[in-house]
Design a protein around this nucleic acid. Structure first.
Lengths: 160, 160
DNA sequence: TATTGTTATACTCTATAACTATA
DNA sequence: TATAGTTATAGAGTATAACAATA
């Protein structure tokens, strides 16, 4: 596809009038653009709904992985989520300071710690995951359940 | 869906062993997580392929909108892409300084400028959009063309 | 020699307040 | 009174280098 094959707008158009309606068709034909816009739209709702729990998207991802993988190490969280180790330290420290997780000695590596939810952390995550699931319903309300599954399957074919 | 309905991992599991394989099934069932991961995967390739043109994803989006909407204003770019006006200024200035665009007087509003590609900017964008289209083919190589279209349609139902 | 966790730090991205010129 | 563009600045997010303890 070449530059501007889509209708009247053209790089050589006369300059004597403004742009009435912005033509976004080119960008909307790119997977990366659509994925980024959809992610930002979901994140916007996420930030608002998770604010009562003090969880941003990455916080939720980390705590959810600890929830479903008790004993996971910081290094494993980094590898799974694409977070760099120096940036993980502060987040884990904050969860620890909030009493949501605890670091236990790792059974086979004295350099590492196994991360576990506290009972307070578990109580928070039960509510947070419930909120996340309601949020999914709301942001995807235009899609059937089958379409939602199709969407996730196709997205995973991009990034996995 | 409640906490950890997915198999052996549990918040109450014994701590005597590390996590062998990280269980990501819960997160992979969330649309927001999948959209963000896919967007980041595409952006990673984008950054590498567009580096020769000195274009980051938002730069490309802006110049592409100017390409297909000659005379568009900075305010319209902000509204379309979700960029805040103070953050748009520097980008437009850099494009101007690089000789890629020019600001012409707006025909009906003396506060605004109509943004237009220069011939250098057009030459760059022809190459950049060609690169973007090849990039699409590569990151979506596991999907048929029909699946790619389905993916974009479903994503747009989330954010539009 | 490589890896885990960590500190320090720099760079980029995003957000808020306030100003000017014009509508 | 509202809007387009702009400046200054603060905050969040992401990046690299280097170190101690352990593998």
């Amino acid at each position: 596809m070449a530059i501007d094959p889509l209708g009247p707008a053209s790089a050589l158009a006369p300059t004597g009038h403004g742009v009435e309606r912005v033509d976004t068709r080119y960008l909307e034909g790119l997977i990366g653009y659509n994925a980024r816009r959809a992610a930002l739209a979901v994140i916007e709702v996420f930030l608002a709904r998770m604010a009562p729990y003090g969880l941003r998207p990455v916080d939720f991802s980390i705590l959810s992985l600890i929830t479903h993988n008790p004993g996971i190490t910081a290094r494993q969280l980094c590898a799974t989520l694409g977070v760099l180790p120096p940036n993980m330290v502060g987040m884990v420290n904050r969860f620890d300071g909030r009493g949501l997780i605890e670091r236990r000695p790792h059974p086979r590596d004295r350099r590492a710690h196994g991360l576990h939810l506290t009972s307070e952390g578990l109580a928070l995550m039960i509510e947070a995951e419930r909120t996340a699931e309601q949020l999914e319903k709301d942001v995807a309300h235009k899609l059937t359940l089958a379409q939602q599954q199709t969407l996730m399957d196709l997205l995973q074919k991009i990034y996995l």
